[in-house]
């Protein structure tokens, strides 16, 4: 489960990302859309200088330990990206007693991508933001 996929980002030279995509809800479709639209291009492993945990979708309390385990298994240096309203703050499920109010409660997040869901372009903008940091 914890082997990351590697991508390069056309339009952002030098950005190579190893992404472990944890798709928990509908936002995950936008990650797939980014790949099929050519915004993320599968690349050789080893080009990336850090691993990224990309959390998209609703994180329930029941699922949180699995996300934490994925984070802990990721090789250093590792960076966390939260994609979409659910992962950011709980989003539409902000009042649900069984949903985490943001994935940053359990793992460190460096970039928060807004949207419900965010567009695939917003993912690229977020990754660019992360690379520039």
């Amino acid at each position: 489960m914890t082997s990351a996929r590697h991508y390069s980002v056309p339009g952002v030279p030098g950005l190579a990302v190893g992404v472990l995509d944890i798709g928990l809800a509908c936002c995950s479709l936008e990650i797939a859309a980014a790949v099929t639209a050519g915004l993320l291009v599968p690349a050789e492993a080893g080009a990336a200088d850090s691993s990224i945990l990309l959390v998209s979708g609703t994180v329930t309390d029941a699922m949180a330990p699995a996300v934490m385990a994925a984070w802990n298994d990721l090789s250093e240096p590792r960076r966390g990206v939260s994609f979409g309203a659910c992962a950011n703050t709980g989003g539409p499920y902000w009042d649900a007693p069984t949903v985490l109010k943001g994935i940053d409660q359990v793992i460190p997040i460096e970039v928060y991508v807004p949207g419900c869901p965010p567009r695939p372009e917003a993912l690229i903008a977020g990754l660019t933001e992360l690379a520039a940091r």
Binding site: S82, N88, T89, G102, D104, I109, E110, V111, Y112, V113, P114, G115, P118, R119, E121, A122, A125, G126, E129, R133
Partner: peptide, 12 residues
């Protein structure tokens, strides 16, 4: 247009 990503949840 695209809303910008932020470095904290409060930044949104």
């Amino acid at each position: 247009g695209l809303d910008q990503s932020a470095h904290s949840a409060g930044g949104l």
